[in-house]
């Protein structure tokens, strides 16, 4: 009897665990790249949870000291704009920082599991995605835009979109409406291997870039239309 019970328990556990990947056959089935898109438990839980924007707004109070009210971020790029970002991207980035897959010591204590549960992550992501994106973000100096456009269209647009719109299905962040200095800083640390959670294809592409190339692309991205 004990043995039968144990078998049932194991089966039930397997069903519960595999359910995430099988039920609605979401697009991320099978994606399990440990370097970039690993589906670890808190991330799966956050992706499965039904987010609620009202709860998200209440929880976001602990984030707005840095990301500002309505998640507009800072024009100087010290903190990114989160408003209007894709839900899948927000969840990935929050849980990546939470589990230290993305290095971000400043944010780490505020996204710690003691404070932010997978349900909270889902709520916050839905809230942020619904916020308006305004055109008052930080922009680059505008002195090398042709070069930036050339590189962006050749190397970046395939994933991040011609208008910088990104992709919710593919976890590619929207880059339009983002602060220039943030785009610049993150691009540099992705190239130098310090951010750690970037797509391997992006790392391959950006490895060849000089500081000047990166500045030009970041500048171009900061000038993409906010509401195309």
């Amino acid at each position: 009897m004990g043995m039968v019970k144990k078998c049932w328990a194991i089966l039930a556990l397997q069903l519960a665990c595999s359910g995430a990947y099988a039920l609605d056959a979401p697009v991320w089935v099978g994606i399990n790249d440990p370097a970039w898109n690993e589906m670890y438990p808190v991330r799966v839980q956050a992706m499965q949870a039904k987010g609620d924007a009202v709860r998200g707004e209440a929880k976001f109070v602990i984030c707005q000291g840095c990301h500002r009210s309505a998640a507009v971020g800072r024009v100087d790029g010290s903190y990114p704009r989160l408003a209007g970002q894709h839900v899948s991207v927000l969840i990935k980035q929050m849980t990546d920082v939470q589990t230290e897959r993305r290095s971000n010591p400043k944010m780490q204590p505020f996204i710690h599991l003691h404070e932010v549960l997978p349900q909270n992550v889902a709520d916050i992501a839905v809230y942020l995605h619904g916020l308006p994106v305004t055109a008052n973000h930080g922009r680059g100096p505008g002195d090398d835009l042709q070069h930036g456009q050339l590189l962006y269209m050749k190397d970046c647009a395939t994933c991040h979109g011609k208008q910088g719109e990104g992709s919710d299905e593919q976890f590619y962040p929207r880059v339009s409406g983002q602060h220039f200095n943030y785009l610049l800083r993150e691009s540099l640390i992705i190239r130098d291997g310090k951010r750690r959670n970037a797509h391997p294809d992006m790392v391959t592409v950006i490895k060849r870039y000089t500081d000047k190339d990166i500045a030009a692309v970041a500048d171009f991205m900061s000038r993409l239309p906010v509401n195309p």
């Binding site: 109070v61 707005q64 000291g65 840095c66 800072r74 010591p105 505020f110």
Partner: peptide, 10 residues
């Protein structure tokens, strides 16, 4: 922003 102190007002 340098040291990661959030605005208290938040």
């Amino acid at each position: 922003t340098e040291t990661g102190v959030p605005a208290c007002a938040g």
